[in-house]
Design a protein around this nucleic acid. Structure first.
Lengths: 344, 344
DNA sequence: TTGTAGGCGTTATCAG
DNA sequence: CTGATAACGCCTACAA
């Protein structure tokens, strides 16, 4: 790394390393003239403090670990981008990791973050209670953790998300009000918020006296490769069609699925929204340009990210002072944009 | 961090720290039985080596810095995802940074990576010769750097990209062969590969005796916010339309612009491909679902990422042994997919 | 206001 | 094969 160290500066300026260290840290016990000399020299010789030594000594970092399922999902991507914006002025650095929804990879990511001695972690867990023991241990003994999006996880901490059942209820109801009755719900297998979203979907049907059809809840397994998911969904729809049970509307329960379904329906030569109306959870900026333009339930990624950082820094501060903490769940309002795919 | 250290293990097992260290590192000078004892104890007590101490001592890490302009650009996103896949089995960890095409942010990212003592860096520079002095210094004195995509940068190192002028030539020629003559080229201002792409575009016109119109090269400034870019492009097209110079085809020179232009054309009530045919550089998986399906020139992100990792590790190895290195540029073949937007 | 000395956890050198 | 010792660069009592 760098050759210029506190020691070398000390030698050059005929001062002790301690003085240099204090001067660089702007300690009040160093007189201004000395500080000036040291700072000038440090700047001139491009002194870079050794992070590792500093960390070894202090046990603190300005790193924030981020653990998400997929970077390629528009929602998570947007969230991460907002996180970057939020931490930039605060001089914290993000260490982002993907779990691919796999508990094992999540565990590895968490271990790595521990080894980097991150100041805190922001995560959307792989599964409902994935790595709960590890997360609890980290949260209690190492650094605070904040959960977002998949907030059904039982870790006791601040959680940031949306009102999943309500949003799904509203989306489903909208389709009902437009006269659709054979409404399917497309959702991810083993994903934390799926349950809540299904609940909203079911409640909407119930309140409008539409019988719930088990087969209309379609699960996609994210462990499978992309093409497999596509053909799986297509197969399910074909089966339903043959049994004369083709849905006349679909609520997309995740980012990825909401987009995919457009392709599948096109493949099956079904017209959207005429044959099948679609509305889905997704944060893609391309919703307007999709074919047809996709009605979306958009999560407030910017607010979520800002709140996540704010709460995390607060926790980091409080942990230092051992303050008592009451954890809260923050359910932020989503924003539904109605486009052609549900314009019946 | 962790409470169990080499020292504590040494005490517990009545051995010296040196022996523990060697045992943990599987040194050949430690007898098997001792190794077994140590490893068993370490595992049982969940020993985690202290990265900072290790680094301080050895001066080495398993970190790879990644510096790209935007995460939100499909090409870069896909590249990063492939990088993750490539380094996962090799036990290297990625530190990704975005520069937003800003030299200043790029500089900060590089400095941070230096402070983390990364083993190597993979970067697509913000501008043609952005941070050249810093990059040279890093490459020479700290760790190897590999450039990709924007490989017109003058840093002397391995470079991985595509044959930009050729690909643009082909795309332009395709539109010409289909009878279009008023072909515009949409490109990013101050971006490394823009020049090459414009060259290919011009050559295609030249070889087909189509006069080059200065106004048909449309620059978008990535420093502006998204909406500004949109309205800027719309304005340019409106102007051209009023002067009766509306293009009948557009070649999109970047990921973002290629997608944006579809929205702009829709706004102007211009039919694609009937009024204006479009073909663009982009790696979005959604090309098929766009309205209309977008003809794309797709960069081979997987091969690029794999090659980048391979070459970087090779350089890291060679630097250790001070081997003489001959740097190469690798121009990988792109893959053009013809879809409706250019189906005239 | 500045200096001295010790130690964070690890590895490397040298000795036994 | 194992142990003692020093050192990586930094911070912080404690001393002066």
């Amino acid at each position: 790394m760098s050759e210029v160290t506190i020691k070398s500066i000390a030698k050059a300026l005929q001062l002790s390393p301690a003085t240099i260290s204090r001067a660089l840290n702007d300690s009040h016990e160093i007189k201004q003239s000395t500080k000036d000399r040291v700072l000038a020299y440090a700047k001139a010789h491009n002194y870079q403090p050794n992070t590792f030594a500093k960390n070894l000594k202090t046990g603190k970092t300005n790193l924030i670990g981020v653990v998400i399922p997929f970077l390629s999902s528009p929602f998570f991507l947007e969230f991460i981008e907002e996180l970057y914006k939020a931490v930039l002025p605060l001089h914290y650095t993000l260490l982002p990791f993907q779990t691919q929804n796999q508990e094992k990879l999540e565990e590895e990511a968490l271990h790595f973050l521990l080894s980097q001695n991150v100041a805190g972690i922001i995560s959307s867990p792989a599964h409902e209670n994935s790595n709960i023991t590890l997360l609890k241990r980290i949260h209690e003994f190492h650094c605070p953790i904040i959960l977002f999006d998949r907030i059904q996880h039982s870790l006791d901490t601040h959680k940031i998300g949306i009102h999943n059942s309500l949003e799904t209820y509203n989306a489903t109801e909208e389709l009902i009000k437009k006269g659709r009755t054979k409404i399917a719900f497309l959702c991810g297998k083993d994903i934390g918020n799926t349950k809540d979203r299904i609940r909203g979907y079911k409640n909407a049907l119930l309140n409008h006296a539409i019988p719930f059809v088990e087969d209309y809840v379609i699960y996609a397994d994210y462990q499978n490769p992309n093409e497999a998911i596509d053909s799986e969904i297509r197969q399910v729809l074909c089966d339903l069609q043959q049994r004369d049970l083709l849905p006349d509307a679909i609520v997309g329960g995740t980012d990825t699925l909401s987009i995919k379904i457009l392709g599948v329906l096109a493949d099956l030569h079904l017209a959207v929204p005429e044959d099948v109306a679609v509305i889905g959870f997704t944060n893609t900026n391309l919703a307007d340009y999709l074919n047809p333009a996709l009605s979306t339930i958009r999560q407030p990624t910017q607010k979520m990210a800002q709140l996540a950082v704010e709460l995390l820094l607060e926790l980091i501060e409080k942990k230092r002072h051992n303050t008592e903490i009451a954890y809260k769940s923050y359910l932020l309002p989503s924003h539904t944009v109605h486009r052609k795919s549900s314009a019946i």
